[in-house]
Design a protein around this nucleic acid. Structure first.
Lengths: 332, 332
DNA sequence: TTGTATGCGTTATCAA
DNA sequence: TTGATAACGCATACAA
C-alpha cells in the first residue's frame, strides 16, 4: 500500500506538501498540486485512516447501541441518525446489546479506548450511575429511554401522556374491563407508560384490579404468555392496553388461539408503531413515535456534544401521534 | 487520559515492561507484574486502541454489510457471525447499504483504509468485477448471494434446488394455474430461484404462461403491486410462488384486499423464513435458510482468510428446509 | 528479566 | 510556497 512518502517521492515534493493538498490547503501552487494529484492517482494512494485517526485521536465514527437489531422500530431511527451523520462527515456503526449489561459495557469501553467519538444508545442495561460516569467524560446521547435523573442528554416522547391518551381512547369506546400489559418494571419507560395508563383510568373512575395489570417481557412471547395466563385464570375483559406493539401482537395471537376475535371480542392497542403493526392482521391501533426525528435530533445533539457546545436542555421531548387502526374496533 | 508512559513512571519501570504485561507476556517477574497492575488500576489506564491498531495495522473489527437492517432475516445471521467473532477476539460492526452501490463502495473503502480487517457482505450492489478486485486484495466473504463466477468466497444454500422443491410441493397439492413473483432480474439469487421454479413446473408438464411470471421489487410493496396488477388484469390462478417472504406477504395483503382468502382461494408460498412469516396470518409456507449457520460459517471463513489459510473451496453450500404452514393450505 | 530505541503514517509547527 | 522534523501511543527487536 502506497503511503504519503511514496506520493511525495513520486511527485518530487515533501510529505508536508502532500499532506497540504490532502487537507485542501490553498497555500500550494496549482502546478505542484496537479503534480501531486497525478502521483496520487498513479499510485492509487489512499490515506491510511488508522494513522489519521491515531494522529487526530478522533475517528469520525459514532456508535449506535440498539437493544435488538431486527426490530424495525430502530431502522427508522437509524435512518434519521444516518442522514444527519453523513451530512457532517460522520459514519455510524450499529451494535446490538440484547439488553445485556456486559455487552453494553464493552461498547462504552470502545468510547474510552477512542474507537468511536460518541455513543447514541437506545438501550440502557447499565446502572444509571455508570451511564452517567461515561456521559460525564464522553459524548453520550440516550434515546427513547428516560433515565431517573436529568444529567444525561436524552431524546424521547412524553411516554406518560401518550399512554394516557391511548388509554383514554379505549375508555372513550366504552370499555370498562381493561387489562394492561406493563412490560418490565425495571425500565423507566414502562413505568412511565403504566403511570399514564393508571392516570387515565382513575380520572375516568374506571377500576382496574391488580390482577389485570400484568408484568411481562417486552416482546411477542411475553405478550402471548401474559394473555394466555389471564385467559386460563378465567379473567373477563373487553380490552387490552399493551405498553408495546410486540406485546400487543403476542396478545392477539393468544386471543386468537383461545378462540377470541380481535377487535370484536377484545380490543387491543399497542405502543410504538413498529412496521409489523401496520402489516399485522388486524392492524394495530398504537402510538406513533416520531422515529426518524428521534434519530436526527439525537445525532444533532451528539454533534453539539462533540463540538463542546453547551446543551440548551438535557431533555428533548418530541411529539407523538395516535394511530387508529383495526385492532381497537369500535366498542359500544 | 493516562498513557503507557504514565503507568511506567508510576510503577518505576520502562514502557516496554508495561507493554509486556499488557500483552500477557510470561517473561515478567510476578512482583513487577503486580506493581504494574497496581499502577494501571490506580491510574485507571486503558490502552489507546487507536494507537494499538495503528501500530499493528489491524483493528480486530469485521464489517458486516446488510441490504436492510430492519429485516429479521439478517438478525439471525448476525447472531451466528457474532458468536464466532467474539470467541476469536473480533468485534462486528453492522452497516446498512440499502442496496445502494455508492454506499457499498464507501464501506469497501473502509477496508482499503484499514478501518476494518474484513467484510462479510449480504448485499452485492457493486459490479462483480469491482467486488473481485476488493476480494483479491482483502478478506471478503459474500453471504446469501451468488456471484456469477467463483472467485469470491461465498456461503449460500442451493437456491435453485430449494425453489424447485417448494414449487414441487405446490404442484403436489394439485395446483395447475400458478403465478410466480420473480424478484429483481439483476440479482443472481432471484435468477436461480426462477430457474428452480421453471425446472419444477416443466418437469411436471405444467404450463406457466409468461404473464404469470412477474418481476417485482423484493419487498412487501413489490409483492402487493405485482399481485394487484395480476388481479386487475383478470388473470386466473390458484397458487402464487413468491421468491421471497416479503413479496409473499405483500401478495397475501393484495389478495385479501381484493376479497380473496388465503389459502382457500389462493395458496401462497414464500422463501427465506423471516420472522414475520411465522407471525403473519396466515403463517407462511416457505424455505428456511440456516441463518445462524450461514453467519457462523461466514465468519469462520473470514478468520481463515485473515489468517491467510488457503480456502478448501470458494463456495460453501448449506442445507435448507421446507417449512409447511398455513398459507399453502391443502388444495384438492 | 528489563530497558533502550525505532518505526508505524499522518498532521502540524517551525524554519527557510 | 515549501521542507525538515517532531509528535501522537504503542509494540518489538535488540542490547544489556
Amino acid at each position: 500500500m502506497a503511503t504519503i512518502h511514496d506520493v511525495a517521492r513520486e511527485a518530487g515534493v515533501s510529505i508536508a506538501t502532500v499532506s497540504r493538498v490532502l487537507q485542501g490547503s490553498s497555500k500550494v501552487l496549482p502546478e505542484t498540486q496537479e503534480r501531486i494529484n497525478d502521483a496520487i492517482r498513479r499510485l492509487n494512494y489512499r490515506p491510511n485512516r488508522l494513522a489519521q485517526q491515531f494522529r487526530s485521536q478522533e475517528t469520525k465514527n459514532i456508535l449506535v447501541i440498539v437493544p435488538e437489531i431486527g426490530n424495525t422500530f430502530y431502522s427508522d431511527i437509524l435512518a434519521g441518525i444516518k442522514s444527519v451523520a453523513i451530512k457532517n462527515g460522520y459514519s455510524i456503526l450499529i451494535v446490538d446489546s440484547n439488553s445485556d449489561p456486559a455487552a453494553e459495557r464493552h461498547f462504552y469501553e470502545m468510547l474510552v479506548q477512542k474507537q468511536v467519538d460518541g455513543i447514541i444508545a437506545f438501550s440502557t442495561a447499565l446502572p444509571t450511575a455508570e451511564l452517567q460516569s461515561y456521559a460525564a467524560q464522553y459524548p453520550v446521547v440516550i434515546g427513547c429511554r428516560y433515565v431517573s435523573d436529568e444529567t444525561l442528554p436524552n431524546v424521547t416522547i412524553d411516554n406518560e401522556k401518550a399512554s394516557s391518551d391511548i388509554t383514554n381512547y379505549i375508555l372513550s369506546l366504552g370499555h370498562k374491563k381493561i387489562c394492561y400489559l406493563a412490560g418490565p418494571a425495571d425500565t423507566h419507560v414502562y413505568r412511565a407508560r403504566l403511570n399514564g395508563f393508571l392516570d387515565a383510568v382513575r380520572s375516568r373512575g374506571v377500576d382496574v384490579p391488580r390482577n389485570r395489570i400484568v408484568r411481562c417481557e417486552a416482546n411477542i412471547q411475553g405478550g402471548y404468555d401474559a394473555v394466555a395466563n389471564l385467559l386460563n385464570s378465567r379473567e373477563k375483559f373487553t380490552a387490552i392496553v399493551a405498553s408495546g406493539d410486540t406485546m400487543a401482537v403476542g396478545a392477539i395471537r393468544a386471543l386468537n388461539n383461545f378462540g377470541y376475535h380481535v377487535p370484536d371480542d377484545v380490543a387491543v392497542v399497542g405502543f410504538d408503531d413498529i412496521e409489523l403493526s401496520r402489516l399485522f392482521s388486524p392492524s394495530l391501533t398504537t402510538v406513533r413515535q416520531p422515529k426518524y426525528l428521534i434519530g436526527s435530533r439525537s445525532m444533532e445533539i451528539m454533534l453539539d456534544l462533540i463540538a463542546g457546545k453547551p446543551l440548551l436542555s438535557y431533555r428533548t421531548v418530541l411529539d407523538y401521534e395516535l394511530v387508529i387502526r383495526e385492532s381497537s374496533g369500535s366498542f359500544v
